[in-house]
Design a protein around this nucleic acid. Structure first.
Lengths: 209, 209
DNA sequence: GACGACATACCGACCGGTTGGTATGTTCTG
DNA sequence: CAGAACATACCAACCGGTCGGTATGTCGTC
């Protein structure tokens, strides 16, 4: 079904539109982003838009799905996966989330976290796509958390799933505070608290904040 | 003779509009909410709307400000303030945040957390009003946290301010997950993690999750 | 290797309904 | 009566989406 396509071929309107959606929607939100905004940012025409997407909602779903695959590739490639100790991988992930808070807010905030707030009630298709992205990402972390819990003999109080989801809640919530105060450091502070929580949970000695 | 009007107690159009904004915006988001939506929900006309608010943005600011005062009254009235131990007040607050997760999502999620994601880049006035609400609420908790830290001799690693803001990040982030998965229990789980974090921080014994 | 048949990608003018906002009443209240 | 509070009618810009059309393959057939 999916068109097979050389990696280095010219971008194509569909790709350009989804890429544009990443930045435009993160900056203005889904509802406030018009189809024309997207076309302008992508440098394509409205005809091209509706050739590739049957509606604006359809683009939203495609953007969320592509977001999931882009971010999963991004985190898979990160160095922290190399740690032999699963807890180090979890903490490495948290540190990494803090490290990438660079540049403009719209460059590091989460597309699906932004979109779902506007669409959960009115666009089930987009909401579900956002959940696939968030839940799928959490599942990756959950694997390391589960292994760390086994390795350090933690159990009973909570599940690896719930802790993995909690990490995502903190990250998403920190974005909201950062947007409210227009400050990235408030975001980093919250992630530091998340790190400390995990350290305390696993009773591991650690260095500094 | 022209219009027959039911003689009720009169809340006033402004109040009705702000109240309507609370529920409509939480359900559909700020951008997707139209002035007509608000008027319909409030049972007033467009003329009344623009008599009281000079623009939709102005209503957004008023809604955020009124949200701050309504919620602050709501939490001030809650029982957990009576605990003599400041840490019990902090934990009581967290428990209370979990208890109120009842009914439809739009009934317990946060207006300003929803709005700020859509407006931080394009509506500085609304963004600032949202921050006043979030930051102001955090300041109340910060007072108890600071007292608890003093009382239990905690210091150095983090500030009361940053922990207070972290509680808000968790709460906001949990809303996003709840909206994504359309589930309130995922929200409660994250707040339970927040409670456990605070317990671990203060080294207080506690019972299960 | 030319040709018709068909598919894909893209263009941009256009449409009808919606939007935030205005202009101009009318009614209630002090 | 004055003026605030509300209602009605209306508008110009804008929005998502449509539609007829073009340019460029590409595949099978002779």
């Amino acid at each position: 079904m999916a068109t097979m396509k050389a990696a280095n071929a010219k971008p194509g309107a569909r790709t350009k539109l989804v890429d544009a959606a990443f930045s435009v929607i993160r900056e203005k939100g889904y509802s406030a982003t018009t189809v024309d905004d997207l076309c302008r940012a992508a440098g394509v025409t409205k005809g091209a838009f509706f050739h590739h997407f049957k509606s604006k909602e359809d683009l939203g779903v495609a953007a969320a799905d592509h977001w999931a695959s882009v971010t999963s590739g991004f985190f898979e490639a990160a160095r922290y996966h190399r740690h032999p100790d699963p807890l180090d991988r979890v903490l490495g992930y948290v540190d990494f989330r803090k490290e990438i808070l660079q540049g403009e807010l719209a460059e590091f905030t989460c597309l699906v976290g932004t979109m779902v707030q506007e669409t959960y009630g009115s666009n089930p298709a987009i909401r579900d796509a956002c959940w696939r992205s968030i839940g799928g990402h959490a599942a990756v972390i959950e694997a390391d958390i589960a292994e760390a819990m086994r390795h350090y003999g933690l159990d009973g109080d909570f599940s690896a799933t719930s802790l993995a989801l909690h990490t995502q809640a903190v990250i998403q919530g920190a974005f909201i505070l950062a947007k409210s105060k227009d400050s990235a450091s408030i975001d980093a502070d919250s992630i530091s608290h998340l790190r400390r929580y995990i350290e305390l949970l696993f009773g591991k000695s650690h260095q500094g904040m």
